[in-house]
Computed example of a mutant assay.
Amino acid sequence: MARAKIADEVGGPAVRAAVAGGADRNTTATAVRYLLQLLAERAPGNTVEVRVPPFGAVQCIPGPRHTRGTPPNVIETDAATWLALASGSMTWDEGLASGAVHASGQRASLEGLVPLRY
């Protein structure tokens, strides 16, 4: 069963609150999931898995489909870093250089896909 889509009227304000700081855990979770949803919509596919534990994960970017076991292309980061990347306050290269973003696999890159419009 597909996960329910977060409406723009709910996701946008959650992102703005979380990026501004001081958002509660539920608002942060909604913001993270909404931004992951936007990423999957912007770059549909199953080649790269983007994980933001404990809030969510999506598969995105066109290319070879992954179906079993650990995906060959994984990007993982924490919620604060994901919010910074998706909102544009941190670049992809800054996230990698700081160690806040862990990317493994030949296609594990969000270069040109972040920031997202919300």
Rank of each mutant, 00 (worst) to 15 (best):
A100L: 14
N73H: 14
A18F: 04
G22E: 12
A80H: 03
P72M: 07
I6V: 09
V10E: 15
K5Q: 04
A80P: 00
G99T: 04
V15Y: 09
V114Q: 04
R117P: 02
A43H: 02
A29G: 12
D8G: 05
R16Y: 02
E94A: 13
P72W: 10
I75A: 04
V48T: 03
R33T: 02
I61L: 10
G11K: 01
V15I: 14
T28S: 03
S87D: 04
D78V: 12
A86Q: 00
L36Q: 00
A103T: 10
D8L: 10
G11N: 03
T67L: 05
L35G: 10
G63S: 07
D78H: 11
A18K: 09
A14M: 07
V52G: 10
P13G: 11
A7K: 11
W82G: 02
L116D: 05
G12Q: 13
L110S: 13
V10P: 05
P71K: 08
S104Y: 10
A20H: 01
G95H: 13
T28A: 12
A14C: 01
E9R: 11
A86S: 15
R3M: 07
M1G: 11
P64C: 09
T81I: 15
N73R: 04
T70C: 10
V15G: 02
A84N: 09
R25S: 12
A20N: 07
E76M: 11
R68H: 05
V74W: 06
D8K: 14
P62L: 04
T81L: 11
V58Q: 06
I75N: 08
V74G: 04
A18L: 03
P54H: 10
P115G: 14
V58F: 10
A14K: 08
I61V: 15
Q106F: 07
P44W: 08
T28F: 04
L96A: 01
A97T: 10
G22T: 08
A7W: 00
T28H: 06
L113I: 14
L113M: 11
A84R: 09
L39I: 03
I61N: 14
H102L: 12
L38Q: 14
R3W: 00
T91M: 12
G69D: 06
A57N: 05
V15L: 15
G112F: 14
C60S: 11
A79H: 08
D93I: 08
V114W: 06
A103R: 11
G112S: 13
R33D: 01
L35I: 07
L38A: 09
V50P: 09
S109T: 15
G63C: 08
A84P: 02
E41Y: 00
I75F: 00
A80W: 02
S109Y: 15
A18P: 06
I61M: 13
T28N: 08
A84V: 02
I6A: 13
W82T: 06
D93F: 05
A43K: 08
C60P: 08
V58E: 00
I6C: 07
Q106P: 00
V10Y: 08
T67I: 11
G63N: 05
P62Y: 05
D93N: 13
A84L: 03
A40H: 12
L39A: 07
G95Q: 06
E41R: 01
Q59C: 08
E94Q: 15
G63Q: 07
Y34T: 02
M90Y: 04
A31W: 12
A57D: 07
A20Y: 08
V58G: 02
